[in-house]
Design a protein around this nucleic acid. Structure first.
Lengths: 111, 111
DNA sequence: TGACTAAACAACCGTACAGTCATATACTTG
DNA sequence: CAAGTATATGACTGTACGGTTGTTTAGTCA
């Protein structure tokens, strides 16, 4: 069953590698854009204001780690989300954050 | 509702900061140890083989970001998991990984 | 008080990596 | 073929950060 297993060092390294990939606002931004649907590199450059090489490199990494898929069509390369796990992860994190701020408020308010 | 909201740049930065914290095998290792129950810094040093200052710094960060809680008792400081979100996150990641390898196997096998 | 231990902190070093610039590759069109 | 566009890739730079060493702080015990 998931959740009860002790993680091996190797598995932990793989998981960490993926968390690290998400630990970058620029990449979250790109993934967030892709949520609206597939997009070309140029689309993402326009949408994010980031440099071309930069976007390209981030996409490269995201693709290597299986977060996005590619589809080549003529001059363009379309990227799309491989699945929605990323946002489940973000939602969990946001939940944590909400709880954090709630606790903070309680402390500040002295309740 | 969660999941349907577009994340602001600020929120994205906070989320990324937390993913980055988990994007480090050493910290996952520490959290994994804490899964068995609260532990002192010394306990974690023994369990992981990491240096004292190193463990201390990682715990500092994990505490700042709300992943662990501290309890001081005499000379010792006990750390414990603030909640189990971390492992829900890890499980999701592992699920992704499992799918990745499954896809890879399919491709290799040419099925 | 002084000796001892646990944890935190500061300073330092080396590496990893995000961002940028320049260039190469791949494809389309005339 | 040449010219033009989209993307990838390589080289470089600055910075962030993990790990270590040494020191400091806080607490215990004699």
């Amino acid at each position: 069953m998931m959740g009860s297993k002790v993680m091996s060092a190797d598995l932990m390294a793989l998981v960490a590698e993926r968390f690290k990939a998400l630990g970058e606002p620029a990449r979250l931004r790109i993934l967030s854009e892709l949520r609206a649907g597939e997009a070309t590199v140029s689309d993402l450059i326009d949408a994010t204001g980031m440099g071309q090489a930069n976007v390209s490199k981030h996409l490269q990494l995201l693709h290597t780690l299986g977060f996005v898929e590619r589809r080549k069509e003529g001059l363009h390369v379309f990227y799309s989300l491989a699945d929605t796990t990323v946002f489940q992860l973000c939602d969990l994190m946001c939940g944590r954050l909400a709880k954090e701020t709630r606790d903070l408020r309680r402390i500040v308010a002295g309740r």
